[in-house]
Structures are given as C-alpha cells and as structure tokens.
Amino acid sequence: MKYSIPKFWRRKEGYYQIILTKCRECGKVAFFTYVRCPYCGSSNVELVKSCGRGVVEEFTISYNRVEEGEEYLPKIIAIVRLNEGVRVVGELVDIDLSEVKEGVEVEAVLRRFSSDDPHGLIYYGLKFAPVIKGA
C-alpha cells in the first residue's frame, strides 16, 4: 500500500475537485484546502470550488526518475493560472510534448496518480488536459 487510506480519503475532496481557500480577512484566494489562510494566517476562511479551467503559464518536461513514478515519464509539470486568478501547479496530460506551450487552455481531468499494482487501490486525482473546443 503506497499511501495511507485514511490520509488519501480525508483529502479526497481536494484531490477530486479543485478547491480553493478564500480568506474572509485579507480577501486572498489560494489553491488547496488550508486550515488557515496561507497569506495572513487567519482562520476565518471558506473553501470554494474552482471552475477547474485555466491557462498554462509555464511548464517543464521532466525526466526525473522517481520510484514507482516511472510509467508517467516524461511528465509535464505546468503552472496553470485558473480562471479565478489563482495559480496551481499540476501535471499536464493528453497533449503531445511538441504541442505544449504557454497560453494553452486547460481543464482539470480525473486521472490516476498512482496505484497499488497488481492488486489494491488505484489513487485518482486531478491533472490538467487541453480544453477540447466545442466539447
């Protein structure tokens, strides 16, 4: 078992949807579920759901070999600016390496993070894929 089941289950909301932490004190919004505002430290925060769409601002094509992550190589790690104005870093999939560029419109898609092959759990989470026009 690669991951603790309770640990993964507890965060499922943040893995299956893009959840943002909005601070009622300083007004800033951050990707992921924080118990306090990561900018000002206030606990007066609310969790809001992102529309899950954005634009690639920067990316790297990575060949860094990490145990049990080999099947995902080469991987594209991108900085995505969500439509809400918030930055998130995540994997970019369903795109040819030669077609990756800044400005590509992407949306969050459910993909496999990892699995307990050959038996056991499959861990899913959100990655980003190009928006299919007209879809």
Binding site: S62, R65, V66
Partner: peptide, 26 residues
C-alpha cells in the same frame, strides 16, 4: 529521489507527482 521529494508538502505536492527539480526548472 522519491524520499527527497518529501521535503515538499506531501499532501499537496508529492502525492501529485511534483518533485524538487521540477520546481527548479520552472
């Protein structure tokens, strides 16, 4: 490389396959 990646936030970064050299590249 795998355990070194745990210097990042396990729940936010590591589990989503982001590693320290990816950040250095960005």
């Amino acid at each position: 490389n795998k355990v070194y990646g745990k210097v990042l936030d396990y729940e936010v970064e590591f589990i989503r396959n982001i590693t320290p050299p990816d950040y250095a590249a960005l």
